[in-house]
């Protein structure tokens, strides 16, 4: 089963990878042309570095991780469980809701657990919000996605369908990372992920932080109280609360991992150290940013 699963994943990856790459190229080209027509430079510095580094390294790591994790964990779990949820016309809506639910919690973990935020914040660290944000791949997300997927597979969901769903969401959100579309109809903004409400997700204003985790739909945000509409009187400030003043990809890659490591080393006692790893960003022990490791102080809210 694990072999079939890996083959299936590879096939999906190849087809979606090719299709997604063409569509991504399309929107990036459009972004460049529109910037040019608006009298701006073709690329922002952030965008160019994202293209040269993250776009080449990110998918490579993710594909390796995804194949290994799927063959190693999901295949075993699916073989062990006697439960099966068939894939047919009446279970498709169930798969859709379950896939959205899985994405919601995987995404929320990426924001609300510091270890995972160190990875996911790479995607959020751009101060611009345009199609080049799509290039800021998150290299290690498969490892925490599995925390959500494994229980779903254990209760009988077909892992291939979950993988397919996981590939759909970035393909869909390719078109959401832009300020060019603006606000759509209120009911549409309420129900679906749109460029406007996903812009809220990418903003670091206090009102907007840790909101709108949905992949295609906003329903689980409504259920769990994390939905936030874009307010006219609160223009979004894109990026993270500790804005990066560099587009150097190595620094972007490590900008949260390095302080995480320093905080972990400096934290007094194991309880505190575990808090640094698994606690919520901004609410754990933390050294002041820029301070030397060892000068322990309680944290200012970080994210």
């Amino acid at each position: 089963m694990a072999g079939d699963l890996t083959e299936g994943v590879k096939s999906f990856f190849t087809i979606y990878g090719l299709g997604g790459a063409v569509l991504l190229f399309f929107v990036l080209l459009a972004e460049m042309l529109m910037r040019r027509l608006e009298g701006k430079s073709l690329w922002s510095g952030e965008g160019l570095n994202s293209l040269l580094f993250f776009f080449t390294v990110g998918p490579f790591i993710e594909q390796l991780a995804l194949n290994a994790v799927l063959a190693g964990v999901l295949g075993v779990v699916y073989n062990l469980t006697p439960l099966r949820i068939p894939v047919n016309w009446w279970t498709i809506p169930i798969y859709l809701l379950a896939g959205e639910f899985a994405f919601y919690w995987f995404h929320r973990l990426g924001h609300e657990v510091r270890l995972f935020w160190a990875d996911h914040s790479i995607h959020h660290s751009a101060k611009t919000y345009d199609f080049t944000v799509n290039l800021r791949f998150v290299p290690f997300q498969t490892f925490y996605r599995i925390l959500i997927w494994a229980p779903l597979v254990a209760i009988g969901f077909n892992p291939l369908m979950l993988v397919l769903f996981a590939l759909n969401i970035p393909a869909f959100q390719t078109f959401c990372h832009t300020q060019r579309i603006g606000r759509l109809a209120p009911w549409f903004e309420w129900l679906f992920v749109t460029p406007c409400n996903h812009g809220v997700h990418h903003a670091c204003n206090e009102l907007y932080i840790d909101k709108n985790y949905g992949g295609l739909l906003m329903i689980w945000d409504h259920v769990f109280g994390t939905y936030q509409r874009m307010e006219d009187d609160v223009p979004p400030v894109f990026g993270i609360t500790h804005q990066l003043e560099t587009a150097n990809p190595i620094k972007v890659l490590g900008h949260e991992f390095v302080p995480l490591w320093h905080d972990f080393r400096a934290a007094p006692g194991w309880r505190s150290k575990l808090g640094v790893i698994f606690g919520r960003p901004g609410q754990t022990f933390a050294l002041p940013r820029g301070a030397e490791a060892g000068s322990a102080q309680l944290a200012e809210p970080a994210e």
Binding site: I15, Y16, L18, G19, N168, A171, F188, L191, F192, L216
Partner: peptide
Amino acid sequence: TSAAWLVPYIVVMGLAVGLMIKGQ
């Protein structure tokens, strides 16, 4: 003609383009 009908289509579009390039 609501844009809402494009949501499922966007999901299929990546697949269709990938299949076209693969010659399938």
